[in-house]
Amino acid sequence: MHRDHIGLDQAPARHTYTPPSARALRIGLGGPVGSGKTATVAALCRALRTELSLAVVTNDIYTTEDAEFLLRNAVLPPERITAVETGCCPHTAIRDDISANLEAVEDLEASLGPLDLILVESGGDNLTATFSRGLVDHQIFVIDVSGGDKIPRKGGPGVSASDLLVVNKTDLAPLVGADLTVMARDARHQRGDLPTVFTSLAAPGGVAPVADWVRARLDAWRRR
């Protein structure tokens, strides 16, 4: 060809994402509507903000709704929270066309300086929505007991392949007749060695199992 051509193998990684050495760890949080993704993000921010420099990108279907929840609850200063519009397709923005989220993540890093951790919260979607590996390094999938104790058995990529499965609202289990041992067994069956934690964010320190898991990922990220 007449063009000055660069082979595909020479395509620099920066074209799709910032070189890993120069950037924060990125963790995605997905899960169905109402399972407690935003509450988990808020609790994580409160638990980690004194020890880490962190920022959040939200992908609410109503764009700024989740960002405003986080702002109202003052979990982080406003400049550390960005909302991305998803054009009615929250799963597209985190999986098929991640460009707007990558822009948001990189803009946060550019404007705030070096960060330790960026949480990317997906808009509430269904059990098949997962994050692209081009956008996040790890993903957490949040379900809750009130959705029925059959959800882990149903599987789907979020339940079976996420790096951490969070079963939230365990305090409601007796009220909705959900059997946590059944959920744990089904999760193990679907997920093999991948971890599952049970949380009740209503309780003090309820997010601790998730925060501990995040800290361990961050340690591994720094040591790589």
């Binding site: 519009e85 054009g87 597209t92 923005a93 098929d96 991640i98 460009s99 707007a100």
Partner: peptide, 24 residues
């Protein structure tokens, strides 16, 4: 030449990851 027709289709495809899906 150069697979131009296929390239055109690829660029016009709404699934090409260039951010268009979130704009009306």
């Amino acid at each position: 030449p150069g697979g131009a027709t296929a390239v055109l289709l690829l660029l016009a495809d709404g699934r090409f990851p260039a951010g268009g899906h979130a704009h009306s």
